[in-house]
Design a binder for these strands. Structure first.
Length: 355
DNA sequence: CACATTTGACCGTT
DNA sequence: AACGGTCAAATGTG
């Protein structure tokens, strides 16, 4: 467990180091006499190291039959929900086609079997079973609830995997290029197969301080933990220029690369209270749309924390060591300390559910 | 008529 | 007891 703690520290340290370096870059760019190349290289080195870490997490997940890439099992080990049933949450924006009221076409046939007003929620939660439950014995279910923050967004929690063969799939095998991504989702067992689809090998991890409120007392140290998101894809080359980051530590893949605005280039710099020379706009919701489905940020954040809180050996976690980094930066080149002995079995667990 | 949705009742868990 | 999840009768739809 001491080893696990060290690994956690390294990961946290790495991102914090990146953040600090970026802050330093901001300050130095303000002085205008500094090109910032050295710092940029170091920052990107840290980011690359972290992405490599994520890659390792993902590779580890690939051994799971139930945890497709880009979807983090919310309850590893089935600690609080029924064991042996995968459960994950996606966030789907109502499109112009489906309208605000849905239904949300995720490629499967669902039959609504209930609706419930949820305490403290503005919108009721709908309960769905796969339409092929009777015919094919498919046990997949989902719950749909409109987001509190954005009523055009639906939080969709999937419970269990489909064992059915979908009728629409049997009827048509024709996919238009434009519909390709959506139709990927229509494939039977899409979620299970996604991890095998190289074009979809993406990992999106999102921690947010706003979700810390649900953490239990022994996880209080998370309250000072900064918000950050990482969006990784194996198609991302070592060319760190593909990575973009906001001042809130949000990374995006090239496909949703945010637009970068520099006050020196922009006519009217944002009147931010604290000087921030680089402003990066996040992708619009419409750009994200199904891209954002990979993880439901708030839920992932809180569920990771809750999952962590369920572990028995996590009371003393996430204490940030100031002296450890996985990255060494020598002569403008980046190397890190990760090797085959790296063990990812630390309590913030991406490992597959245990049956 | 067959099937889907709605909705209040019921049940298990906390 | 309160809450979330499910059931099933009533109702709606094609």
């Amino acid at each position: 467990m001491d080893e696990n703690m060290d690994q956690k520290r390294l990961i946290v340290k790495e991102i914090i180091q990146a953040r600090e370096l970026i802050k330093e870059l901001q300050a130095q760019l303000n002085s205008s006499s500094f090109s910032g190349q050295d710092l940029i290289t170091r920052i990107l080195c840290s980011v690359e190291t972290f992405l490599s870490m994520l890659e390792r997490v993902k590779m580890k997940n690939e051994s799971s039959p139930e945890s497709p890439l880009g979807y983090v099992d919310l309850f590893p080990g089935g600690s609080r929900k029924r064991k042996g049933i995968v459960r994950w949450t996606e966030q789907v924006r109502a499109s112009a086609q489906t309208g605000l009221e849905g239904p949300l076409d995720d490629g499967y046939d669902w039959r609504k079997y209930g609706q419930k007003d949820i305490l403290g929620a503005k919108h009721p939660r709908g309960y769905y079973k796969c339409s092929h439950r009777n015919g094919q014995g498919c046990l997949a279910m989902k719950q749909v609830q409109r987001s509190e923050l954005d009523s055009s967004i639906f939080n969709v929690t999937y419970i269990g995997k489909h064992s059915c063969i979908e009728t629409s799939e049997l009827l048509s095998e024709q996919y238009s290029p434009i519909k390709q991504e959506h139709d990927q989702r229509r494939r039977p067992n899409y979620h299970q197969e996604q991890r095998e689809d190289k074009s979809f090998e993406e990992t999106y991890i999102n921690f947010q301080t706003s979700s810390v409120q649900v953490a239990k007392d022994k996880d209080k140290q998370f309250e000072s933990f900064p918000s950050f998101s990482i969006y990784s894809t194996t198609s991302m080359q070592p060319n760190v220029g593909n990575c973009s980051e906001t001042k809130d530590n949000h990374f995006f893949p090239p496909s949703v690369k945010p637009e970068i605005h520099s006050p020196s280039l922009s006519p009217s710099p944002s009147p931010s209270p604290s000087p921030s020379p680089i402003f990066i706009s996040t992708p619009t919701a419409s750009e994200s749309n199904y891209k954002m489905n990979h993880i439901e940020g708030y839920n992932i954040g809180e569920d990771l924390l809750q999952t962590t809180a369920d572990s028995h050996d996590t009371k003393d976690q996430m204490i940030i060591s100031p002296n450890v980094s996985a990255t060494s930066f020598v002569n403008n080149s980046c190397s890190n300390l990760m090797d085959s002995s790296w063990d990812w079995d630390f309590p913030i667990d991406f490992s597959p559910p245990q049956f």
